[in-house]
Protein backbone atom coordinates (compact mmCIF):
# COMPACT_ATOMS: atom_id res chain seq x y z
CA UNK A 1 0.00 0.00 0.00
CA UNK A 2 1.55 3.32 -1.02
CA UNK A 3 1.26 6.36 1.23
CA UNK A 4 -2.34 7.37 1.65
CA UNK A 5 -3.91 10.13 -0.44
CA UNK A 6 -6.98 10.48 1.77
CA UNK A 7 -7.81 13.70 3.55
CA UNK A 8 -7.85 13.86 7.34
CA UNK A 9 -11.62 13.73 7.46
CA UNK A 10 -11.68 10.66 5.22
CA UNK A 11 -9.12 8.97 7.47
CA UNK A 12 -11.28 9.49 10.53
CA UNK A 13 -14.54 8.44 8.91
CA UNK A 14 -12.77 5.46 7.35
CA UNK A 15 -12.02 4.15 10.82
CA UNK A 16 -15.55 4.68 12.06
CA UNK A 17 -17.49 3.32 9.08
CA UNK A 18 -15.68 1.68 6.14
CA UNK A 19 -13.08 -0.08 8.24
CA UNK A 20 -14.78 -0.20 11.62
CA UNK A 21 -12.46 -2.38 13.72
CA UNK A 22 -15.22 -4.54 15.20
CA UNK A 23 -17.87 -4.78 12.49
CA UNK A 24 -15.81 -4.60 9.30
CA UNK A 25 -12.30 -5.73 10.16
CA UNK A 26 -13.54 -8.21 12.80
CA UNK A 27 -10.46 -7.57 14.91
CA UNK A 28 -10.20 -7.40 18.69
CA UNK A 29 -13.19 -9.66 19.13
CA UNK A 30 -12.20 -10.76 22.65
CA UNK A 31 -12.91 -7.37 24.22
CA UNK A 32 -15.89 -6.88 21.92
CA UNK A 33 -17.46 -10.02 23.33
CA UNK A 34 -16.11 -9.95 26.86
CA UNK A 35 -16.20 -6.34 27.99
CA UNK A 36 -19.15 -4.87 26.08
CA UNK A 37 -21.74 -5.72 28.72
CA UNK A 38 -22.51 -2.10 29.60
CA UNK A 39 -22.31 1.23 27.79
CA UNK A 40 -19.92 2.55 30.44
CA UNK A 41 -17.47 -0.32 29.88
CA UNK A 42 -17.59 0.42 26.16
CA UNK A 43 -16.81 4.10 26.65
CA UNK A 44 -13.96 3.38 29.07
CA UNK A 45 -12.30 0.78 26.88
CA UNK A 46 -12.88 3.00 23.85
CA UNK A 47 -11.05 5.92 25.45
CA UNK A 48 -8.19 3.68 26.53
CA UNK A 49 -7.81 2.19 23.04
CA UNK A 50 -8.05 5.64 21.44
CA UNK A 51 -5.10 6.94 23.44
CA UNK A 52 -2.90 3.89 23.00
CA UNK A 53 -3.70 3.71 19.27
CA UNK A 54 -2.92 7.36 18.61
CA UNK A 55 0.31 7.38 20.61
CA UNK A 56 1.56 4.09 19.17
CA UNK A 57 0.65 5.05 15.59
CA UNK A 58 2.50 8.35 15.89
CA UNK A 59 5.55 6.71 17.44
CA UNK A 60 5.81 4.06 14.75
CA UNK A 61 5.20 6.58 11.97
CA UNK A 62 7.99 8.72 13.38
CA UNK A 63 10.57 5.95 13.69
CA UNK A 64 9.50 3.80 10.72
CA UNK A 65 12.69 4.42 8.79
CA UNK A 66 14.87 3.09 11.59
CA UNK A 67 13.08 -0.22 12.15
CA UNK A 68 14.66 -3.26 10.57
CA UNK A 69 11.82 -4.94 8.58
CA UNK A 70 12.56 -8.34 10.13
CA UNK A 71 11.89 -7.14 13.66
CA UNK A 72 8.98 -4.81 13.02
CA UNK A 73 6.37 -6.95 14.82
CA UNK A 74 8.36 -7.20 18.08
CA UNK A 75 8.96 -3.47 17.83
CA UNK A 76 5.23 -2.83 17.51
CA UNK A 77 4.49 -4.98 20.54
CA UNK A 78 7.18 -3.19 22.51
CA UNK A 79 5.83 0.21 21.49
CA UNK A 80 2.30 -0.71 22.51
CA UNK A 81 3.46 -2.24 25.79
CA UNK A 82 5.50 0.85 26.59
CA UNK A 83 2.61 3.20 25.93
CA UNK A 84 0.20 1.04 27.91
CA UNK A 85 2.58 1.00 30.86
CA UNK A 86 3.22 4.73 30.65
CA UNK A 87 -0.50 5.57 30.46
CA UNK A 88 -1.25 3.16 33.30
CA UNK A 89 1.41 4.63 35.58
CA UNK A 90 0.56 8.24 34.77
CA UNK A 91 -3.14 7.64 35.38
CA UNK A 92 -2.43 5.89 38.66
CA UNK A 93 -0.19 8.71 39.83
CA UNK A 94 -1.96 11.85 38.72
CA UNK A 95 -5.58 10.92 38.02
CA UNK A 96 -6.57 8.47 40.76
CA UNK A 97 -10.28 9.00 40.16
CA UNK A 98 -9.99 8.15 36.46
CA UNK A 99 -7.63 5.28 37.25
CA UNK A 100 -10.19 3.67 39.54
CA UNK A 101 -12.60 3.46 36.61
CA UNK A 102 -10.19 2.85 33.73
CA UNK A 103 -7.28 1.01 35.32
CA UNK A 104 -8.38 -2.49 34.45
CA UNK A 105 -9.22 -1.53 30.86
CA UNK A 106 -5.86 0.06 30.12
CA UNK A 107 -3.99 -3.06 31.24
CA UNK A 108 -6.06 -5.21 28.87
CA UNK A 109 -4.88 -3.41 25.76
CA UNK A 110 -1.40 -4.86 25.15
CA UNK A 111 -2.87 -7.89 23.41
CA UNK A 112 -5.34 -6.07 21.14
CA UNK A 113 -5.03 -7.11 17.51
CA UNK A 114 -6.46 -3.88 16.13
CA UNK A 115 -3.55 -1.74 17.31
CA UNK A 116 -0.81 -4.02 15.96
CA UNK A 117 -2.71 -4.37 12.69
CA UNK A 118 -3.04 -0.61 12.28
CA UNK A 119 0.67 -0.14 12.91
CA UNK A 120 1.50 -2.81 10.34
CA UNK A 121 -0.85 -1.72 7.57
CA UNK A 122 -0.94 2.01 8.06
CA UNK A 123 1.47 3.72 10.44
CA UNK A 124 4.64 2.13 9.08
CA UNK A 125 3.90 3.43 5.56
CA UNK A 126 2.50 6.87 6.27
CA UNK A 127 3.48 10.20 7.77
CA UNK A 128 2.97 11.13 11.39
CA UNK A 129 -0.06 13.44 10.82
CA UNK A 130 -1.83 10.84 8.65
CA UNK A 131 -1.17 8.17 11.29
CA UNK A 132 -2.48 10.48 13.97
CA UNK A 133 -5.80 10.91 12.15
CA UNK A 134 -5.98 7.23 11.33
CA UNK A 135 -5.45 6.44 15.01
CA UNK A 136 -8.22 8.84 15.98
CA UNK A 137 -10.57 7.23 13.47
CA UNK A 138 -9.77 3.70 14.59
CA UNK A 139 -10.09 4.66 18.26
CA UNK A 140 -13.48 6.27 17.75
CA UNK A 141 -14.58 3.43 15.47
CA UNK A 142 -13.73 0.94 18.18
CA UNK A 143 -15.49 3.05 20.80
CA UNK A 144 -18.56 3.34 18.58
CA UNK A 145 -18.68 -0.43 18.14
CA UNK A 146 -18.25 -1.10 21.84
CA UNK A 147 -20.90 1.45 22.83
CA UNK A 148 -23.37 0.10 20.27
CA UNK A 149 -22.87 -3.43 21.59
CA UNK A 150 -22.96 -2.26 25.18
CA UNK A 151 -26.20 -0.36 24.57
CA UNK A 152 -28.00 -3.44 23.26
CA UNK A 153 -26.58 -5.80 25.85
CA UNK A 154 -27.10 -3.54 28.83
CA UNK A 155 -30.65 -2.66 27.78
CA UNK A 156 -31.70 -6.23 27.11
CA UNK A 157 -29.64 -7.86 29.84
CA UNK A 158 -30.15 -5.55 32.78
CA UNK A 159 -32.82 -3.09 31.71
CA UNK A 160 -30.53 -0.13 32.35
CA UNK A 161 -28.55 2.41 30.32
CA UNK A 162 -25.38 3.84 31.89
CA UNK A 163 -26.60 2.43 35.20
CA UNK A 164 -29.95 4.24 35.08
CA UNK A 165 -33.00 2.05 35.23
CA UNK A 166 -34.98 2.65 32.03
CA UNK A 167 -37.07 -0.51 31.70
CA UNK A 168 -37.61 -1.30 35.38
CA UNK A 169 -37.04 -5.01 34.87
CA UNK A 170 -34.45 -7.39 33.42
CA UNK A 171 -35.75 -8.72 30.11
CA UNK A 172 -33.10 -11.34 29.24
CA UNK A 173 -30.31 -12.02 31.68
CA UNK A 174 -28.67 -14.05 28.90
CA UNK A 175 -27.49 -10.88 27.16
CA UNK A 176 -25.03 -10.06 29.91
CA UNK A 177 -23.30 -13.42 29.59
CA UNK A 178 -20.29 -13.72 27.24
CA UNK A 179 -22.11 -16.02 24.81
CA UNK A 180 -24.61 -13.28 23.94
CA UNK A 181 -21.67 -11.11 22.86
CA UNK A 182 -21.22 -13.36 19.82
CA UNK A 183 -24.89 -13.04 18.87
CA UNK A 184 -24.80 -9.26 19.19
CA UNK A 185 -21.58 -8.93 17.21
CA UNK A 186 -22.94 -11.25 14.53
CA UNK A 187 -26.24 -9.44 14.15
CA UNK A 188 -24.60 -6.01 14.07
CA UNK A 189 -22.05 -7.18 11.54
CA UNK A 190 -24.91 -8.38 9.35
CA UNK A 191 -26.56 -4.98 9.68
CA UNK A 192 -23.35 -3.24 8.65
CA UNK A 193 -22.94 -5.49 5.64
CA UNK A 194 -26.55 -4.96 4.63
CA UNK A 195 -26.14 -1.20 4.83
CA UNK A 196 -23.08 -1.42 2.62
CA UNK A 197 -24.95 -3.46 0.02
CA UNK A 198 -27.83 -0.99 -0.03
CA UNK A 199 -25.44 1.94 -0.27
CA UNK A 200 -23.49 0.40 -3.15
CA UNK A 201 -26.67 -0.48 -5.02
CA UNK A 202 -27.88 3.11 -4.77
CA UNK A 203 -24.56 4.43 -5.95
CA UNK A 204 -24.56 2.12 -8.93
CA UNK A 205 -28.11 3.13 -9.85
CA UNK A 206 -27.09 6.76 -9.96
Amino acid sequence: MPATTKTNFELVSNGILNENPIFRLALSMCPAVGISTTVMNGIMLGIAVLFVQVFSSCTIAAIKNYIHPRIRIPTYTLTIATWVTVIDLVLAAYMPAAYKEMGIFVKLIVAFAIITMRLETFACKNSVPASFWDGIGMGFGFMFGMVALGFVRELLGMGTILGYDVLGFRPLLFFVLPAAGFFCVGIMMAMFNYMEIVYNRKRRAR
Binding site: I67, I71, P74, T75, L78, T79, A81, T82, T85, V86, L89, V90, A92, A93, Y94
Partner: peptide, 18 residues
Protein backbone atom coordinates in the same frame (compact mmCIF):
# COMPACT_ATOMS: atom_id res chain seq x y z
CA UNK B 1 14.54 -1.14 20.98
CA UNK B 2 14.18 -3.18 24.18
CA UNK B 3 16.62 -0.88 25.95
CA UNK B 4 14.77 2.23 24.81
CA UNK B 5 11.44 0.77 25.91
CA UNK B 6 12.90 -0.26 29.27
CA UNK B 7 14.41 3.18 29.73
CA UNK B 8 11.10 4.93 29.02
CA UNK B 9 9.08 2.62 31.28
CA UNK B 10 11.67 2.75 34.04
CA UNK B 11 11.93 6.51 34.10
CA UNK B 12 8.14 6.93 34.08
CA UNK B 13 7.93 4.47 36.96
CA UNK B 14 10.54 6.36 38.96
CA UNK B 15 8.79 9.68 38.33
CA UNK B 16 5.30 8.46 39.18
CA UNK B 17 6.05 5.96 41.95
CA UNK B 18 5.80 8.41 44.82
Amino acid sequence: SCLIAALVMGSVFVITDK
